[in-house]
Design a protein around this nucleic acid. Sequence first.
DNA 1: CAACTACTTGAACAAGTGTTCCATAAGTTT
DNA 2: AAACTTATGGAACACTTGTTCAAGTAGTTG
Lengths: 187, 187
Amino acid sequence: MDGRRARGEKKRRAIVEATLRVIERDGVAGVTHRSVAREAGVPTTAPTYYFATLDDLLIATLVQAAEETCEEMLGTVARGGTAREIAAMLAKAVNENRGRTLAEYELYLLAGRRPELRAAARRWLDLAVEAMRPADPVAFRALLAAVDGLLIQGLIADVAPNEDELEPIVSFLICGRDDSTAPARGQ
Amino acid sequence: MDGRRARGEKKRRAIVEATLRVIERDGVAGVTHRSVAREAGVPTTAPTYYFATLDDLLIATLVQAAEETCEEMLGTVARGGTAREIAAMLAKAVNENRGRTLAEYELYLLAGRRPELRAAARRWLDLAVEAMRPADPVAFRALLAAVDGLLIQGLIADVAPNEDELEPIVSFLICGRDDSTAPARGQ
DNA sequence: CAACTACTTGAACAAGTGTTCCATAAGTTT
DNA sequence: AAACTTATGGAACACTTGTTCAAGTAGTTG
């Protein structure tokens, strides 16, 4: 093995992680070669060495962040989690993981303007539908939409909602008017 | 009256409108004194004369855009519009008014990081709740969340959904499991 | 007409930007 | 050890940025 390449890969990952921290703190607007390099503790030219352009770095970071979140989302939303489990995950997203969730929606917005990012931004939606194969697709799509809405509204609330406030709403969405066609059963 | 001030106000409005066009086209990232001035057909220093800082211009523009959209939203969502009416409005937002809707969510994201913008970003939500006084607040909040979710997901779809695709989802949300507590009656 | 006020605008500045370049260091292979 | 590849990092370039400034115009008021 080439030890140089191994350390290079490590540094590359460190740069991506630093970029994510910058996005979480200052948003996409705060991402510059210099701010990322400062955050990662590497010289200014390091990011350019590993990523052809700033845009590449930005996109690589947002896509990776989205994929990381994907698994957590699918673990609770898609696999027929209870309303409380889903509510707990949403509450965590708008409180402890606030910065990360904001980053997630920066990707959404970027994807709105750049078609090549759309697949990455939509990935959790596509995976959820594929994993669930819900009996009532309409109810399930309503749930998925509401999840995005609750998150983004939670981000602009004066005080972010907690699990207890979110739970009844999620519960309402999970137990549609006909329980037999609902995608999952809440508490 | 002072004709100078009148023309000044007109120019000020023209600058805000130009800024909105820039945001719709290139996003908040594309807003600079120079790009706005070019779009409005005024010299570079004109925006600085009317707005102390670029941030002031940006905020004034997004807040005004949000207030404009507010009325349209409330006219259909809040006043107990039918599912089809709501679906039609959503379809319009992600197709004809795509740029405007993207701008709306740029405000959301900015509000996520700047508390002073939150009231403006949340305005349509607050007004909707106040105007409706829904019998079932939980169902209504689910509907409002889903509206945001459907819009933002519509913006990152490969092909934006149309009225017919959105209508069943809205209908499902409006006629909850118990019609008597539903906020409004669909078709 | 003179004094005043509001608007207009080009030039300029310091700061920060993405990116290129190149000499050097460090590790790998022969 | 020599030849090579890969990684490193400082200096520099051309460019754009937000904002300031001062000189100018044109309306309003006394």
